[in-house]
Structures are given as structure tokens and as C-alpha cells.
Design a protein around this nucleic acid. Structure first.
Lengths: 136, 136
DNA sequence: CTGGACCTTCCAGTGCACTGGAAGCTTTAT
DNA sequence: ATAAAGCTTCCAGTGCACTGGAAGGTCCAG
């Protein structure tokens, strides 16, 4: 199939497919006599995999690594398990940080509600924001 | 004071200060006869404000807006309150999404633990990742 | 045989907040 | 007098995942 058809079936743009090829995520497909890329059906599966892996939070570089292992004839299970563990740890860490950010913003909101504009001198920029959220 | 001293006191680099000036966050300071930037003490406060506002999650563009209001002689309270509300909403939204991502990753981890590499054909890329995490 | 849809390559830009480096000038210390 | 530290400007690059656009080639219907 041609790139436009593949793009439509995979739910990405033709631009993205060419970009993935450049980035080493898709092998170079054969060309027609006119120079058009000609993809086998399996290309849809590969693009679907890329999407699933992205949804799991893997970067394109990580996905390239997984694909390279598979393309090398190995089952990438161990590698994938590592990546999942790494990302889970990162996500949990990020959840903690975001929770703290939320708490800080709630504190700022309370302070904002208690702030009278008339009390703000022009010496500082904004008494609501100054000082308290500086823990991150 | 000169840029290096200000940088040290504010905990940023001289590069960053020049960048902030270009970005409209800091006014152009007077120059010495040799062309060196010469900052008043208050510059430290302004940089501290920028840091606090960043810690609260505001972008430089938003901070520029707050500073512009203050520099225009107004108290930016209402504007700041709006920004805080917006960011709080964004952070809470992001917390929900990240929580979902965490759940998806945990599901992947369970599946990975239950996957035997011997069962992976070479037809697909990786059965652990394919299909399930597609909700995000 | 012509128009339009589709394809090709290549270069550049997006957003964000800086960071790096080169080439040259000023200031301070010795 | 000279070296070193610090400053100046300007241009370019970082990371990420694309996206936009120009200039041109190909394929198919009518």
C-alpha cells in the first residue's frame, strides 16, 4: 500500500511516517518504479505498536531500542520490562511532585483570597506569589 | 552591582539574566562607561519573584504579563488569582492523567511478569505492549 | 492530454527555557 | 605591563516529536 493509505489506516500523517523512517523506527520500504514508497500490510502493526508504546510513555528513542532488539531476532521482553519499571518509577515520582505543586497552588489560592490589593505596595511585584512556593 | 554579582545573589547564571532581559522580564539596566550592565539592589527581588512564580508553575510568558501589570502601576492581584486558578486546574487534570498512566503501567508490569519469552512469535513486536495501554 | 490528487525531497520552524561558544572589550590584581 | 577574570554581542544548539511549505515528479480519470 502507499504511504497515504498506511497513514490513514494507522491514524498518523504521511509526514509522520517519513519522519519515523528517518528516525530509524520504520525500515525503508521498497519503492515503485515511480519512486513511491510501497508498504506491506505489517507496517500497520508496526505503527500500532509505536502508538501503544508511546501511550505507555516510552520515548521514540526507547521504542527504537525495542524495535531494534526485535528486528535483531530477539524477544525484547527483558528490555521492555526494564523500561516499564523505569517509567513506572518516573511516573510515581512525578505524581508526588505534582501533588506537592497542587498543594502549593492551593496555598497560594488561599493567600490570594485573603489579599487586599490596597495592601500591596509598589515595592514588591506581588505579595501573593513571593516567598511561599519556593520549595520545588 | 554587576551582572555576575546579581547572578550569584539570585542563584541564576549571567546568561539567564541577559536572556530574561531579551525576553522582556527585566528592564534594561543602565550601563557603566565601559558598557557593563549596572543593576540596582531591587533586581535581586525581581529575579526572586520570577523564581517564585516559576515554582508556582507560571511560564515566562505569564510572568512577563504579571510584571507588565505591576510595571504599569497596577496591582496584579486579579490577574495572578486567575493564573493560579488556571494552573491549579491544569495540575489537577494532569494528576488524573498521570494516575491513569500509572495504572496502565502497573497493568503492563503484571502482564510482563506473566509473559514467557518463548511464547512470543516474531510476527509481532512485543505482546506485552501491544493493545492494552491504548486508553490515554 | 490535462487537471488534480498524491507522491517525492529538502529545509526550516514549532515551543520552552535556557545553554554553549566564539571573538573581542574592560577591569582588577600583581 | 600583563595576565586573568569578568563583561560584551551574536549566533547557534539543546530535546522532543513532529509540522509546514516549496518545488517538483507520478498516476489516474475523464
Amino acid at each position: 500500500m502507499r504511504i497515504g493509505v498506511l497513514a490513514a489506516q494507522a491514524g498518523v500523517t504521511a509526514k509522520t511516517i517519513r519522519f519515523y523512517e528517518d528516525a530509524g523506527l520504520l525500515p525503508e520500504p521498497p519503492r515503485t518504479s515511480g519512486g513511491y514508497r510501497h508498504y506491506p500490510e505489517e507496517a500497520v502493526l508496526r505503527l500500532a505498536f509505536i502508538r501503544d508504546a508511546q501511550a505507555a510513555g516510552l520515548s521514540l528513542a526507547e521504542i527504537r531500542g525495542v524495535l531494534a532488539i526485535r528486528d535483531g531476532g530477539q524477544a525484547p521482553c527483558a528490555h521492555v520490562t526494564d523500561l516499564i519499571d523505569q517509567h513506572l518509577a518516573q511516573v510515581e515520582q512525578r505524581l508526588v511532585e505534582l501533588g506537592q505543586a497542587r498543594d502549593a497552588l492551593r496555598a497560594l489560592k488561599r493567600r490570594a483570597a485573603a489579599t487586599d490589593p490596597a495592601n500591596c505596595g509598589s515595592g514588591e511585584v506581588c505579595t501573593i506569589l513571593t516567598a511561599p512556593a519556593a520549595s520545588t
